[in-house]
Amino acid sequence: MRTRVWFRIHWRMFVAGWRRGSRYRAAALGGLVANATFGFLKASILVAAVRAGGGEIGGYDAASITAYTWLSQALLGSVNLSGRSDLAVRIKDGSIAVDLLRPVDLQTASTAQEVGRALFALLPRGVPLVALGVLVGGMRLPLEPVTVALSAVSIVAGTTLSFLTVYLVAVAGFWSVETRGIQTAYMILSGFLAGLFVPVTLFPGWLLAVARATPFPCMLQTPIDVLSGRVTGFSAGQAVIVQLAWIAGVLLVGRLITHAGRRRLEVQGG
């Protein structure tokens, strides 16, 4: 029964987030135009780089690098690479006290809502960009049921992981009023290490190792690789398992921090 209650609460939160996402249409249109512009610019230089590399760089050929470009732009509206969250604002202005009084888990409930809002962006931003990639950029999408199912899991996992990590940034506010520094650091590093600018497989070995030691590649690079069919079958399954492992890890760290933060609020009275 408790599981059922848990699912009901979090489903409600997810739906509430989804509805909120649906209210920002003008902003979504603006974002779409920006993503498309970057898509065209990135595709042209990355394809040129592949040609210059003799038809292949970092495991990408012209078709897969095109897919990479458009998919990264398509997911950009959903995966949180800015480090900003409503929660951080609520902690700063003190309205967090209200949230903590509710009989729900702060971490999972707030993340469910953010993820709902983020996934809505797939409709106004993700789908048109993929369509643009297919029509204009000559990108192909795999249609095997297994890949499609795995891709869906991977996208949701990547988005969830990004918001769980941003949650860690937000709850730093329990200890310090000014979390702007951490948020900015997240913003600067996450895009680069997630593979937003260039695929992480183009990184020199040491930098690739650094990237893999963070959750960031699992937020964007992994869903793209699975969705574009660059990794398939067993290795695709493996990639998704790595994502889930990161989610479990970040979830656990978040729980510990939330617990400590609550204690701190109770002791110091906010």
């Binding site: 230089i45 990355l46 040129a48 780089a49 210059a52 590399g53 760089i57 970092g58 600018f197 260039v198 183009l202 990184f203 020199p204 930098l207």
Partner: peptide
């Protein structure tokens, strides 16, 4: 990172 991977673009 990009230009390191190839000779010229």
């Amino acid at each position: 990172v990009l230009y390191r991977a190839v000779d010229e673009i």
